[in-house]
Computed example of a mutant assay.
Amino acid sequence: MKKFLLSMMAFVTILSFNACSDSNANQDPNLVAKESNEVAMKDFGKTVPVGIEKEDGKFKISFMVTAQPYEIADSKENTGYISMIRQAVENETPVHVFLKANTNKIAKVEKATDDASVTSNLYLIKKREVKAIKQSVLFLIWQR
């Protein structure tokens, strides 16, 4: 009886290994790579970049919503993304950013929708109001 159970366990184990190796062999490698790339990206959201600096062959970008700097490699594939970020810094307009999962590296940049532009414009109005209030307070302090 013990030999029978032992042989059945060995048979089931060999069948399991065989089934697993067969299922991996039938998968399309291009399909698997596409899925892993999409899963590897995290949506950072629509935000306004406030600074971009080149350092050691990569660009460090700072965004309005966080103090952490984010990086993008200086490569031919990223030249469009880098120019889009530079333009957004100059115009103070939002961009839609995607990060590589669990890193601070930028994987993709897209133009933001009109809703994000409205939010950005409201931010700029508030920023100008705060600046005007600070200037008036400083002026009042200076007059004393």
Rank of each mutant, 00 (worst) to 15 (best):
K3G: 04
F4V: 13
F4K: 06
L6F: 03
L6Y: 02
S7R: 11
M8V: 11
M9S: 13
A10M: 13
F11R: 02
F11V: 03
V12R: 06
V12Y: 12
I14H: 00
N18G: 14
A19G: 00
A19D: 00
A19E: 01
D22V: 01
N24W: 03
N26R: 04
N26C: 01
P29Q: 07
V32M: 09
K34Q: 04
K34V: 12
E35G: 11
E35K: 13
E35M: 13
E35L: 15
N37V: 09
N37A: 08
V39R: 10
V39F: 13
A40I: 00
A40C: 08
D43H: 11
F44V: 04
F44L: 15
G45S: 07
K46G: 11
T47V: 15
V48Y: 01
V48S: 03
P49I: 10
V50Q: 10
I52D: 05
K54D: 06
K54H: 02
K54C: 03
E55G: 03
G57S: 11
G57M: 06
K58W: 02
F59S: 08
F59P: 01
K60N: 04
K60L: 05
S62A: 14
S62P: 02
F63H: 07
F63P: 08
M64E: 12
V65N: 14
A67G: 09
Q68L: 15
Q68D: 13
Y70A: 01
Y70W: 05
A73Q: 02
A73P: 00
D74L: 06
S75A: 11
E77K: 14
N78Q: 09
G80E: 06
G80Y: 10
G80N: 14
I82L: 09
S83H: 11
I85S: 07
Q87N: 12
Q87L: 09
Q87F: 08
T93F: 08
T93S: 15
P94C: 06
H96A: 04
V97I: 15
F98L: 05
F98M: 08
L99A: 02
K100V: 15
K100E: 09
N102L: 13
T103V: 09
T103R: 07
K105Q: 12
I106R: 08
K108I: 04
E110W: 05
E110H: 12
E110S: 02
K111D: 05
K111N: 10
K111A: 07
A112R: 00
V118T: 11
T119V: 14
L122W: 04
Y123K: 08
Y123M: 10
I125G: 02
I125T: 12
I125S: 08
K126P: 00
K127A: 11
R128C: 00
R128M: 04
E129S: 13
E129I: 12
V130C: 00
V130H: 06
A132Q: 13
A132R: 10
A132H: 05
A132K: 05
Q135N: 14
S136K: 14
L140M: 12
Q143G: 06
